[in-house]
């Protein structure tokens, strides 16, 4: 699917860019975003190391397993294929709690840790497993109880009540999360894992 989206985006940009006379801007954007990607990735190194270090300690101390065990009843419904008490459940809990609280730069490293642990259970390494798709979908919908960035923008624009959008945000992101879980569950049969295709 990503193949088609990628080709679609690129072809669209060239065609529309030509028609709009913005071909030069399109080319510039391509080079600039390539550079931005590296800046983003390099910027992640420090914060990534900090959280992965802490997570390693938490794992060795059995804290991640304890959290996983706590959450097993709820996660059994959402991730039926993950074995009971698997550490990925603990990491996913930490990732989801961090994004609920609007702690974006803690959420990403914790989510990547969870993704790595889910990858251990994944039989076909280049293809996303059912749990990985569900986990990703939950993250793209991401319930946020404290949308920190937008509250700051509103406050600086002189809002009388910068936090009044908390309730509406929880409602909208809650709906999005429910659909994310349902969609990843219902659509999985239309996108089966193909083992033999892993080298093309």
């Amino acid at each position: 699917m990503l193949n088609y989206i990628w080709l679609g985006l690129v072809l669209c940009s060239i065609v529309v860019g030509t028609v709009n006379g913005r071909l030069k801007e399109v080319t510039e954007a391509a080079f600039q975003m390539a550079e931005t990607s590296v800046t983003i990735a390099i910027g992640l190194i420090g914060i990534m190391s900090l959280w992965l270090g802490l997570m390693r300690i938490a794992e060795k101390a059995g804290i991640v397993r304890f959290l996983a065990w706590l959450l097993t009843p709820l996660f059994k419904l959402i991730f039926p294929e993950i074995p009971k008490g698997h550490p990925s459940l603990g990491s996913m809990l930490l990732n989801i709690s961090a994004s609920w609280l609007g702690l974006g730069n803690a959420a990403t490293p914790l989510g990547l840790k969870a993704m790595e642990q889910l990858q251990e259970l994944n039989p076909v390494k280049d293809t996303a497993s059912d749990s990985q798709v569900t986990f990703l979908a939950i993250n793209t919908a991401s319930i946020t109880i404290v949308p920190t960035t937008i509250i700051a923008v509103r406050a600086s624009a002189g809002s009388a009540n910068a936090t009044e959008i908390i309730g509406t945000t929880i409602f909208a992101s809650g709906c999005a999360t429910i659909i994310a879980i349902l969609a990843s569950r219902l659509l999985r049969h239309f996108f089966p894992v193909r083992k033999e295709a892993s080298h093309d």
């Binding site: 699917m1 990503l2 989206i5 989510g111 990547l112 993704m115 790595e116 889910l118 990858q119 390494k125 280049d126 293809t127 996303a128 990985q132 798709v133 569900t134 986990f135 990703l136 979908a137 993250n139 793209t140 919908a141 509406t168 945000t169 409602f171 909208a172 992101s173 809650g174 709906c175 999005a176 999360t177 429910i178 659909i179 994310a180 969609a183 990843s184 659509l187 999985r188 239309f190 996108f191 894992v193 193909r194 295709a197 892993s198």
Partner: peptide, 28 residues
């Protein structure tokens, strides 16, 4: 997320993510 573990075949992840986005917009 998928890049960090080397996944290139995302299956229905994009579709599920975009459906969630559309739902978020409608709900908002």
């Amino acid at each position: 997320y998928f890049g960090s573990v080397g996944i290139t075949r995302s299956r229905h992840a994009v579709l599920a993510g975009l459906l969630a986005d559309a739902t978020g917009v409608l709900a908002a």
